[in-house]
């Protein structure tokens, strides 16, 4: 055995680290690109959850910078996210619009009654067509939409205080300053 053989474990380990680093880059769920980035919100005609006879369209998303939040009652993480959304609304007054995705409207209203409703309004997307057009993978997912109704950012997963303060807030500020 050569003296260098004691270095074998070091090389094996280095190999594993490189592999992990690659795997790590590949699997980052937050790096999902959105093809809709910098495109206007796709056209839709869907009812309002709280006023079923009212039809909402993409035009209703314009006017001010808003968060478009995809949620559902079957999604446990949405409950976890709900507290943060409430906090965001009550501290910043930011307009938050819900997309109730693949859900039962009755259950959705009960859910909002129980947890509170910081949203400006909810788009009922019972069959998931809007979510498909938005390129949604699952709930929760949140888009930042500027005053012109253009998608500027997409966040997959729960919006935490950290995400909001470090990523979304500067972006929203820029968008507000621009308009």
């Amino acid at each position: 055995m050569a003296k260098q053989s004691v270095l074998i474990p070091v090389f094996v380990f280095a190999g594993i680290v490189v592999l992990l680093w690659f795997g790590f880059q590949l699997s980052d769920p937050h790096l999902l690109p959105s093809q809709k980035l910098n495109d206007p919100v796709p056209e839709f005609e869907l009812p309002n959850l709280m006023q079923v006879d009212q039809t909402l369209t993409a035009a209703d998303l314009t006017g001010e910078v808003s968060l478009l939040n995809v949620w559902a009652t079957w999604c446990p993480s949405c409950i976890a996210e709900h507290g943060e959304l409430t906090r965001i609304f009550e501290t910043t007054g930011l307009r938050i619009i819900g997309v109730n995705y693949n859900d039962d409207s009755e259950a959705a209203r009960a859910w909002l009654k129980r947890w509170g409703d910081p949203y400006a309004f909810h788009i009922v997307d019972e069959s998931g067509t809007l979510a498909i057009d938005l390129g949604v993978y699952g709930a929760p997912e949140t888009f930042v939409v500027d005053a012109g109704g253009v998608i500027r950012y997409r966040h997959v997963g729960v919006v935490t205080q950290k995400v909001f303060e470090e990523t979304l807030t500067p972006l929203i500020q820029n968008l507000k300053d621009a308009s």
């Binding site: 409950i79 709900h82 507290g83 409430t86 906090r87 501290t91 129980r114 947890w115 509170g116 205080q161």
Partner: peptide, 13 residues
């Protein structure tokens, strides 16, 4: 970490 000042009245289980 606290989720202050607004926090849910009920936990997510």
């Amino acid at each position: 970490e606290r989720a202050l000042p607004f926090y849910p009245a009920e936990g997510a289980d």
